[in-house]
Amino acid sequence: MAFIDYYKILELDKNATDAEIKKAYRKAARKYHPDLNPNDKEAEKKFKEINEANEVLSNAENRKKYDQYGEDWKHAEEFEKSKQQRQHHRGGQQDGFGGFGGGGDYSDFFESMFGGRSATGRGRTTQFKGQDYNAELHLDLKDVYTTHKRTLTVNGKNIRLTIPAGVENGQVIKISGHGGEGSGGGPKGDLYITFFIENHTNFKLDKHNLYTTVDLDLYSALLGGDITVNTFDGKAKLNVKPGTQNGTKVKLKGKGFPVYKKEGEFGDLYITYQIKIPTDLSEKEMELFTELAKLRKS
């Protein structure tokens, strides 16, 4: 397998910062995303390489291993262990590996890894789990109010997902067995999906509670009465008490956001009244308000 230069794929140099890596990945992923390049095999291949590159370079530990071991970064610990074992054997057996002599540090280890003879000479094949993949899913707050299914394209493959209601911004979900192929008969890697939730509604979300502001006309605030307000999934009727003050808060229990993985459980909705003072009063209205003011002063 040819060596893959992940820095070159993202058009970066080896001194790139984490922020530069993230920016380069997002730019390249948008450019080569299968949804924007339907039936384009070259773009599909490029998109897969971009995701592989990001998987390695966006993780500090993985990046360090990659810089040292290149494409075989996933086996860095095995390399080090094998090297230590070889040094131990050589120290005690005086070049007991014969024909390998002083040439390459990992010759026998590579043979055992890829199906050749093992260091013990018994032809053992070592199994390794496949590479884990990372993906981002951008949704609107309305999208995660209810449980729904969605198709996500990862490395050219369509994956049908069930997205539970109440998933949070920045939350990471693991989909087992949807990563890269294993080697030596090892299991597939996993897929880690990071959710980015954007809020384009008039509601503010804090944990599982929702907050919003409702305009209340002066007359309703003074005299009270029934009003209808918008909730996240419909409308609700509220009774306004006479003499309601500006900034008064009321709670609608169970009208907030769903709690993740707890079916039927919701937070609360908090409404703040914002009293609107009437403008452009008629001459008659001004007279009446003047009379009211005199009554309050008497």
Rank of each mutant, 00 (worst) to 15 (best):
F100Q: 13
S176M: 10
N246C: 02
K251A: 08
G103H: 15
Y25H: 02
T120M: 15
F203V: 07
H178N: 09
M113G: 03
N209C: 00
A28Q: 13
Q127P: 13
L269M: 00
Y145G: 07
Y6Q: 07
I193K: 00
Q171D: 06
K255W: 08
K22Q: 12
R124G: 09
D206N: 07
Y192V: 04
T147E: 08
K207V: 03
G102V: 14
S58Y: 01
L292G: 04
D18W: 00
I271R: 01
P278I: 00
L152F: 01
N62D: 10
P34S: 03
G99Q: 15
A24Y: 05
L281A: 04
N54Q: 11
N239P: 05
P187D: 06
M1S: 11
E111P: 13
T244S: 12
E52V: 02
K207N: 10
G98C: 11
E20I: 00
K255N: 12
L218P: 02
L222Y: 05
T17I: 00
D280F: 03
T146Y: 01
G267Y: 08
T125Y: 08
G254V: 09
G156D: 03
L269A: 01
F232P: 12
L295K: 06
E11K: 08
L281P: 10
T153I: 07
D132L: 04
F47K: 04
A76W: 09
H208W: 03
V167C: 05
L281H: 11
N59K: 05
H138Q: 13
K22R: 10
T279V: 10
P164V: 01
D40V: 10
G123K: 15
T279M: 07
F257C: 05
T125E: 11
G123H: 14
L216C: 02
T162L: 06
T125S: 11
G180L: 01
K46S: 11
D226M: 06
T231L: 02
Y106K: 14
K27I: 14
G267S: 08
D226H: 08
F266V: 02
K235A: 11
F109W: 13
V259H: 06
E20A: 04
G185L: 09
N202M: 11
K64D: 06
T201V: 09
T244A: 04
A165Q: 07
R122L: 08
D206L: 04
G70S: 08
K251C: 06
N37H: 15
L161M: 08
K251V: 12
Y32M: 12
T153Y: 02
G189E: 01
E263D: 13
R30M: 15
I277C: 02
L292K: 04
G166M: 01
K65S: 13
E44N: 05
K237L: 03
D13R: 01
A29Q: 12
F257N: 07
S176E: 13
L161C: 08
L216M: 03
D190M: 00
D95H: 15
D233L: 05
L238G: 06
D132E: 05
M113V: 12
P38S: 13
L269N: 01
E11R: 11
F195K: 01
T290C: 04
E111G: 12
K253A: 14
T228D: 12
E49H: 00
K261V: 09
K204V: 11
